[in-house]
Computed example of a mutant assay.
Amino acid sequence: MAPVSTPPMKEAKSIFNNLGYEVIDDGDEFRARRKWREVRVTAYADSMSAPKRGELRCFVTWEENATRLSRQLRDSDPEYEWAVIAVREGGDYEVARAPPSKIAV
């Protein structure tokens, strides 16, 4: 089992690097940039609160936290588009929730 209290930062950066994004460190988060799009990425642990503001956001979390995080974000109805990526032990991942946008990530 993955350490759910430690955010999967290394895995998040690897995912976005492999998708062809430029990863730019920005404190506890990072920005993933490709072409005209920039996404603020948060490696999310089980005890964090989601930000209230933003534009395009992606939360990368351990698989065990993905459903609860998606529900928390849906219930809070933030002003930004968001996605959740669930990381499994070993580095595999799946998009647990993608934004309703027609724009491809």
Rank of each mutant, 00 (worst) to 15 (best):
A45P: 00
E29A: 12
G27F: 06
D77L: 14
R57W: 06
D92G: 11
G54S: 07
P100C: 12
P100G: 13
L56K: 08
F16A: 04
E22C: 03
M1E: 01
E38N: 06
G20Q: 07
N18K: 12
I85M: 04
K35S: 14
R68M: 08
I15S: 02
G20K: 01
G90C: 10
E64I: 02
R33G: 06
R53Q: 13
T6F: 09
N17R: 12
R53T: 12
K10E: 15
R33P: 02
V87M: 10
A50G: 02
P100V: 09
E55I: 08
R53C: 09
P99D: 11
C58M: 06
V39N: 00
G20A: 07
R57E: 03
Y44V: 00
P3I: 01
R97D: 11
V105A: 08
T67Y: 02
N17P: 13
E89V: 01
M1Y: 00
T6H: 08
K35R: 14
G54Y: 03
I85N: 00
V23M: 14
V84Q: 02
S70K: 08
R37Y: 12
L56Q: 06
M1G: 06
P51V: 03
D92N: 11
V60Y: 01
E89G: 11
S49M: 04
I15Y: 05
W36H: 14
G54A: 04
I85P: 03
V95P: 03
R68N: 09
V105Y: 13
Y44M: 09
D46T: 00
E89P: 10
Y44Q: 05
G91A: 04
L56V: 09
A43K: 02
D26N: 14
A86I: 04
D77T: 15
L19V: 08
V95T: 08
K102T: 13
P3E: 03
K13Q: 15
A12K: 04
Y44E: 06
E81T: 10
R71V: 09
K52Y: 11
D25F: 07
E29M: 13
S47P: 00
C58Y: 05
P51L: 01
